[in-house]
Computed example of a mutant assay.
Amino acid sequence: MALQVLPLAVTMVAGPQIMSAIILLTHRQVVRVSLAYLAGFALATVAKVALARRIAALLSGVLSLGDPADGGSAGAIIQYVLVGSLLVAVVRNYLGRATAEPPSWLATLLGAGLGRAFVTGALLVLLMPTDLIAMLTVGVNLAQHDSPPSAAIPFVLATVFLAALPLLGYLAFRRRVTAVMPRVRDWMGSHGRLINIMVCLLFIALILA
């Protein structure tokens, strides 16, 4: 796997994923529910990498994905199609910015148990469109380099580490983080569309680069 896909780990956690991790910092059982959330997040990330690699392998059996350096290869064209889908998402988020409301399920995380936190972490990886696109990009990259799923371990570790940053910050600077997190949570909740737009644009830049 090429190292240039590692920055895609940022898009795996930006948006509702990191917002959920931050909201859990205001939970009455911060460490326990955060670890459960991260466990679900990590397990789903590993499963989705393996699935993306399998899908890319099936595609490569039908058509040649080509050399990663070839901008006209089938693999590159697939990534350009993914960029197009992200551009559509950017436009939709921009047009709906005035009436945007934070997802109602985010507020329910404050009372979530360990099972709910685990499932939330897993579903955010499995169902988020940006995560799906990121995984397909990683899968195509693995297939183009004829690499096994284990070659994506650095990507998985980087993704889980970024998702764990709020908890690590809490453990290192508990008093400061406890004071500031409610304000950060409220800001992210009211600027969800802006965050989604920034994530999509970052993803587009990373793919095209």
Rank of each mutant, 00 (worst) to 15 (best):
L25T: 06
T26A: 13
M19A: 12
P68N: 09
L38N: 06
A134L: 01
A47W: 01
L82R: 02
P103G: 09
A21K: 06
A42T: 02
T137Q: 05
G71Y: 09
D70E: 07
F118L: 12
N141M: 09
I78K: 01
V83I: 12
R92G: 02
G66M: 13
P129C: 03
H27W: 14
T99D: 01
T130L: 02
A117P: 06
G15E: 00
V31F: 14
Q29C: 11
V119A: 03
G115F: 04
R97L: 06
L132T: 08
Q79C: 12
L114P: 03
V46Y: 07
Y37W: 15
A107C: 04
A98D: 15
L24Y: 00
L114F: 04
Q17E: 15
A74M: 11
L142G: 04
V138N: 02
S20A: 15
I23D: 00
A107K: 03
I133S: 12
N93G: 01
N93R: 05
L25P: 12
I55H: 11
V46I: 15
A69E: 11
G115K: 07
S20Y: 04
S85G: 10
S34Q: 15
T137P: 08
E101M: 06
V88R: 03
S64C: 08
S73P: 08
D67N: 13
P68K: 13
M135R: 04
I78A: 11
L136W: 00
Y94L: 15
T45M: 02
L124G: 01
V91G: 04
A117R: 02
P103W: 03
L126C: 03
P16Q: 11
G40P: 13
F41W: 08
A74E: 09
L114A: 03
L63N: 13
L24W: 00
V30P: 03
V140N: 04
I77G: 04
M128S: 01
G139M: 07
S34G: 10
F41G: 03
M19D: 04
G15P: 00
S34V: 11
T99M: 06
D131H: 08
P68Y: 10
Q17W: 02
L38D: 05
L51T: 14
P103R: 07
A89H: 15
I78T: 06
A100P: 05
D131K: 03
G115P: 05
A56C: 13
M128F: 09
V91Q: 03
K48M: 15
S104Y: 00
D131Q: 10
V125H: 10
